[in-house]
Write a protein that binds this DNA or RNA. Structure first.
Lengths: 229, 229
DNA sequence: CTATTTGAACTGACTGGTCAGTTTAGTTAG
DNA sequence: CTAACTAAACTGACCAGTCAGTTCAAATAG
């Protein structure tokens, strides 16, 4: 019910269902990102996915559950990319589409942070609709997806937290800055800067955006020439 | 049609109308912040405001226009507070409710930035529903309020930009960081950190949040002991 | 190899309800 | 006196969820 190993589910489930669910994910991500969860009808989603309305209910049971699983789906992708940017190549997983960045990041934790923020911004550029859905519904209270968001948010913050932790171990940092608040600020800035770039400032480069968010990390570490000999 | 001087409109309009509009703003801000613009009905808003449905249409003409004016209303409040935190007391305006902070900010532009971010976070705490409405609809495209958002966003970014400008004049700054991206990151971080605090981390203090956002400013200025003698 | 059965996946018309916006005849407050 | 507001009924469009029926690939039988 929570998070099963992705590989197992996929191969066990009949091919047709998997394809249908993927089509529904793609279609609803697009439509919901544009007009919001409440602004899109199940009929529209079904039509855009090229299936009938009944299929939506056969596969997901309700509009609400479709959206919950859509959120989980998107977070799985984002989390995998963030982790791929800092961990050494994980065995048994095909990381075909995600560029291996371990060469650039195996050394300095600050460079690892930078790679991770870059991955986050790439994700926002590739799935802007997911980012819009997230910021639209995340802070709603009470909400149908309150519990879903709490879990997913925790998973993503844990990944960011681990990267910040490594920086804090390798460098002298400003201990007056609360770790949690900083992680929240970085996490949120990735969404907001990514969305703003797409909506209002398409001319801004990926690197400019990364640099702006990284400024907060450079402000967090105390000024010392180099921590390692 | 765009932005008339707030004072003029208020005093010219009959007292009853002003009171009615204010009640409708308060009620719809609350409801829309909780359940989203599409999730709230005009009947609910009218009932919560204690007026009849007809009054909503008499005053605003449509649900959409009510929300557009609600956005303008909220931005006027936020902008006034941000400016009050950096400008010397503006003549002719009663700033009764906003604490005068000029004493603390007339000197260092970095302290002025800090005061401004503090004001922004106070605003998010006081009007969380406005913040939710903003992040819910801001990046929707195409949207009913696309034009409204573009204008309001520009006004707010101009205020932040002026404060960043003063820092850049008083301190040596990292010129590889794009000014616009940095402003966007700070602007967005205020919303996101403010909302996150209210939704997920009520135990975090205002000062922790300010410090986390200010980290990006400290990372922006290059390390020099003190710019002024 | 062909015929039959099975059941998961899918279809789309239909239902019951909701909601934005309108209208009208009357009331209130400045 | 009149602009602002009320109360309630009404329209027409829209929509989440349901369900009886259809498809088809794989399993089983002959």
């Amino acid at each position: 019910m929570t998070a099963e190993p992705a590989g197992a589910v996929k191969t066990l489930r009949p091919a047709r269902t998997t394809a249908t669910r993927q089509k529904l994910f793609d279609a609803s991500m697009e439509l919901i990102g544009e007009r919001g969860a409440a602004g899109v009808t199940v009929d529209e989603i079904a039509a855009a996915a090229g299936v009938s309305k009944g299929t939506v209910y056969y596969n997901f049971g309700s509009k609400s559950e479709l959206i919950a699983q859509l959120l989980r789906h998107g977070v799985d992708i984002l989390k995998a990319r963030l982790q791929a940017s800092t961990e050494p190549g994980s065995p048994g997983q095909d990381a075909g589409e995600v560029r291996d960045m371990t060469a650039a990041t195996s050394g300095d934790p600050l460079l690892a942070m930078e790679a991770m923020i870059g991955q986050a911004l790439d994700f926002m550029a590739e799935y802007p609709s997911f980012a819009r859905l997230w910021v639209s519904e995340n802070w709603r209270t009470p909400s149908e997806w309150q519990g879903t968001f709490a879990v997913l948010r925790g998973e993503l913050l844990a990944v960011i937290g681990a990267a910040v932790e490594k920086v804090a171990l390798a460098y002298p940092v400003d201990s007056t800055v609360s770790r949690g608040s900083l992680e929240t600020a970085i996490f949120g800035a990735c969404f907001v800067v990514g969305l703003d770039r797409q909506t209002y400032n398409p001319e801004r480069t990926r690197d400019q955006s990364v640099a702006a968010i990284m400024a907060s990390m450079r402000g967090y570490v105390l000024q010392q020439p180099d921590p390692r000999g």
